[in-house]
């Protein structure tokens, strides 16, 4: 079994003896950097090992004391590095969210181009986006689609024009770049999910990682988000409308990004405004907890759930004037939609 330890890479036999080792130089700064990188490695030990014995076995240190002294020094350095990274963690989240937007824009454009171009050759192919790009990378020309493939039928009877080898090469290359972009998007998403838990555990618990990250990004930072009153949190992301509201006191827009939260999306329309208000207020609370206390408090979410439950119970039916009559086809009376809906 190959494993990574803080002092190097080892291959160990079934009975736990070192078979091969690749030891790192005893430079504490370098070891600290390696320690942090290794925390994301696939070769982390799958169960606890007696690392101290292994280190002595392979001659990395002579005495147990040397092991302790070096390990402690490295851990302190590693923890310091982590803290200095952590201080700017919300800035990293913002970068990642914005990078994701850039990627979506780029991916859309490139995939449209690919669809159009490859469509000349294989117009019957009804794939889009990532699956389209993967298809082109795999097969290139439609003549290479194997018989057992879903698209075989379509590809062998296609009306599209033939691809020259040069063009096939080009398109494949293009599609490969596009797939790379889709992969990066997945990494970014993963990065956001795993870091949101550390940067803002309470916010993440309430809003979920993607929405929480989006809020931090729109607000310009975790602390800034903490300063917003919850009425503002409710409308963050309703871009132009929000600025108008802030500047000129125009009526406030109601649909900020928090409307993407499953609690609101899954609710009937007449409850949404009320749930949005409850959600915004708990998000504010959670963010303040993250910024000022740094402690995880699961009770915020429980309170939110109870509040939403009581909204559901209190307003099971749409308000009367919308529900009792099914409006017959024909001219409708104009009505002021915004006045009663909260």
């Amino acid at each position: 079994m190959k494993i990574v330890a803080w002092f190097g890479r080892l291959t160990i036999s079934e009975n736990g003896k070192v078979e091969e080792c690749n030891l790192l130089a005893k430079d504490p700064e370098l070891l600290a950097a390696h320690m942090l990188l290794a925390a994301g490695s696939e070769d982390l030990p799958p169960y606890g090992l007696n690392l101290r014995e292994l280190a002595i076995d392979c001659g990395y240190v002579e005495l147990e004391e040397d092991y302790d002294v070096l390990l402690r020094d490295v851990c302190i350095r590693a923890a310091k590095r982590q803290i200095s990274m952590n201080d700017a963690d919300d800035k990293r989240i913002i970068q990642a969210v914005e990078a994701m937007d850039d990627i979506d824009k780029a991916a859309n454009e490139l995939s449209e181009r690919l669809t159009e171009w490859y469509g000349v050759h294989f117009p019957e192919l009804d794939l889009t986006g990532e699956s389209m790009a993967r298809f082109v990378v795999n097969f290139g020309s439609r003549e290479n689609v194997p018989e057992n493939h879903d698209m075989y039928e379509k590809s062998s009877t296609s009306m599209g024009s033939k691809l020259s080898p040069l063009e096939e090469d080009l398109l494949r290359n293009f599609a490969t770049s596009l797939c790379g972009i889709y992969d990066t998007r997945k990494y970014l998403e993963q990065y956001i999910i795993s870091n949101m838990d550390i940067v803002a555990p309470n916010l993440t618990n309430i809003a979920g990682a993607p929405l929480g990250a989006r809020l931090i990004s729109l607000a310009g930072g975790l602390e800034k988000l903490a300063f917003f009153p919850s009425s503002t949190v409710q409308v963050i992301g309703a871009n132009n409308a929000l600025f108008k509201h802030l500047k000129s006191r125009a009526p406030s827009p109601k649909h900020g990004v928090i409307f993407n939260h499953p609690l609101i999306k899954g609710a009937p329309w007449w409850q949404r405004g009320k749930i949005a208000r409850a959600l915004a207020s708990k998000i504010s609370l959670a963010v303040r907890m993250d910024v000022y206390r740094g402690k995880f408090d699961p009770s915020i979410k429980e309170k939110l759930e109870r509040k939403v439950e009581s909204i559901r119970k209190s307003y099971p039916k749409p308000p009367k004037k919308f529900s009792t009559k099914i409006t017959p086809p024909g001219p409708r009376k104009a009505r002021n939609r915004s006045s009663k809906r909260v």
């Binding site: 494993i3 290794a38 925390a39 994301g40 799958p46 169960y47 606890g48 007696n50 690392l51 101290r52």
Partner: peptide, 10 residues
């Protein structure tokens, strides 16, 4: 725990 299994012993 796996994220510190390269650091902590038994």
């Amino acid at each position: 725990p796996r994220s510190y299994a390269h650091i902590v012993e038994k």
